[in-house]
Design a protein around this nucleic acid. Structure first.
Lengths: 337, 337
DNA sequence: CCGGAAAATTGTAGCGCTACAAAAATGGTC
DNA sequence: GACCATTTTTGTAGCGCTACAATTTTCCGG
């Protein structure tokens, strides 16, 4: 037992080189730029690769080339499906340049966003997208370009911000309800930064029209239960209400539940608008009027900004808003009362 | 211009060592096992680390230690929320051992599952969980333990299989409808491996009771639209139907839409059962009876199996079923007709 | 104040790959 | 066939970290 039997070790570039009868450098070349290698050797190397089941080690490549061609994305919870469009948008802008997206989720609760960022930085991502509530000092010592996606309470110094125009979205929702003739209007809000902007846009447009608005849930969460509780409060204290605007689609679902429990039909007795245009809103059954925040466009923009800043680190982080769009479906109508 | 000005380079362990006045080895030791280092130096090193904003390079660590303490998980689409419970389960079993989960999604369409696996292997994951439809030769040359989670049409040689007992779940759904007294029953199925098992379990239990069952959508997809189409077909061709079992919650949503369009009330005129017990089913508004496949338990089991096989590569891949549970909510009732 | 065991610290040699300069092969010309 | 410009291939030196043996320091009892 003078030596360990090298069980089925992971094959390396040296194994491939030996099998193909070439130098390791040549194998590396084939991996990176096959056109620079004569057909004879290229074939030999490729044969050896599939014969051995060789796969390059990303760790070694990263270390040697000091670039990963990847952008890190931090999201708060997989369940918030809005990030799906964000990723798709990012990927569409990134893949022509050979870049990829690396996803890290940060469970709710503790300080997991920082942990997620650490993990991403440890993997040598070349840019960072933060689609979660950032904390102040989080970016300390960060040497790569970063962008915050989506309105947040705080944007760390040095990070750009590209987001949906949540104020504008709130105003659109208000506009829609006013134009339908509603004058008894409620809003189900939440405590996050995005919710605050939606609320302010909505409120200011409604007030401009000289109409009152009842707001509930300002300091609560944004789950279906929160939406339910807020809707119950409004419907019980102001039964004359004919329209509700929810800070997101999930909360709108809570509003449906509250309406159902009170025997109110949607949209005949109560109009409801959601926000996010998530799969939920698009669902044939729910068929929900909702504000689409165009996360796909945010993704494209985030990706392009990052790409530009990676190439020219001198560029200043920018701030930019993407225009949302109101998607009218079957949960809003003229008031009957 | 004899030398590049080293802009704000990423700090390395050498920078930390120099700042703290110790050797690089000592810094490495602090990172791995702080208790083995005298308090004085430990403090010095930790100060230097936060001062420089140093973060270890995962690539270098991986390469030097040849272990990543991570398990790769391949899912098909972020939108299928069942993987969330799977991850949570895996993490709960893995974290006591210091292992992490690395997620890779494989967009629908082409051969992306293979790509996702390649990516994961390139990152030196020590084990592989495949929660997507695998293709035959996919695992060729894989030198690490792998497990397939969830029933699939094919399980690659050498991979274990841990999954929900979808047959059993189908039987549970059947049992529930029969015990409520339904005798005109339909099923909305799909083309995947999991759907096939749910269908067979359901059908066989129904037939055992001497009751007929109408099945639609067998060769279609499993989206809400597919569920809608299948439900329409059944309700139009067999209007006497009083209960529907859908292959998943999303399809059940389609069934609701079909019922609504025909003026049928759920559950008074039509009982509906979903599958997955997803956030959708749990929703207060939808309040859907659904089969919970206990993906969290699958996750725990998958993790433990992999851990065991990592420690002892001699272990044979195993096959195992997790018992599902029926969650009765508000979309099923005795037939009124 | 010394020897010696234990604790703390350091030097050396890679991990698997790429960059880049140097060397070898190729091909066309006179 | 000699010569030179190109194209193809190879050797060397690291990327940032860890393992581990070697070395230095610390701490005691005598």
């Amino acid at each position: 037992m003078t030596q360990n039997t090298p069980r089925s070790r992971r094959p390396t570039i040296y194994d491939v080189a030996k099998t193909a009868g070439v130098s390791p450098s040549l194998v590396s070349l084939v991996l990176q730029n096959p056109s620079k290698v004569s057909e004879k050797r290229r074939k030999a190397v490729q044969t050896a690769i599939s014969e051995l089941g060789y796969r390059p080690s990303r760790a070694a490549t990263t270390l040697a080339s000091s670039q990963t061609k990847s952008i890190g994305l931090v999201i708060d919870d997989y369940r918030n499906l809005w990030f799906v469009d964000l990723i798709r948008g990012m990927e569409s802008a990134l893949s022509p340049h050979g870049y990829q997206v690396t996803l890290a989720d940060s469970r709710p609760g503790e300080n997991r966003v920082t942990e997620a960022i650490d993990g991403l930085l440890a993997m040598h991502v070349e840019g960072l997208v933060i689609a979660a509530e950032p904390s102040e000092s989080m970016m300390a010592g960060t040497w790569i370009p970063a962008v915050v996606a989506g309105w947040r309470n705080a944007v760390p110094a040095g990070a750009g911000l590209i987001t949906n125009d949540d104020d504008g979205g709130g105003r659109m929702a208000a506009e829609h309800l006013l134009s339908l003739g509603h004058t008894r209007i409620g809003h189900l809000s939440g405590s996050g930064g995005a919710a605050a902007h939606r609320r302010e846009g909505f409120r200011s447009r409604i007030l401009e029209a000289g109409v009152e608005v009842r707001i509930a849930g300002e300091s609560q969460g944004t789950s279906e239960e929160d939406g339910y509780a807020a809707a119950c409060w409004i419907l019980d204290h102001h039964p004359e209400t004919t329209a509700l605007f929810a800070a997101n689609d999930t909360m709108a679902l809570g509003a449906f539940a509250a309406a159902k429990a009170r025997g109110l039909a949607v949209p005949d007795d109560l109009s409801v608008i959601g926000y996010d245009n998530s799969p939920l809103a698009k669902s044939r059954y729910l068929d929900m009027t909702s504000v689409d925040n165009r996360s796909d466009l945010v993704g494209v923009d985030v990706a392009n900004t990052l790409l530009a800043r990676i190439q020219d680190p001198g560029l200043k982080p920018e701030r930019k808003l993407i225009e949302p769009a109101l998607i009218v479906r079957g949960t809003t109508a003229r008031p009957s009362r």
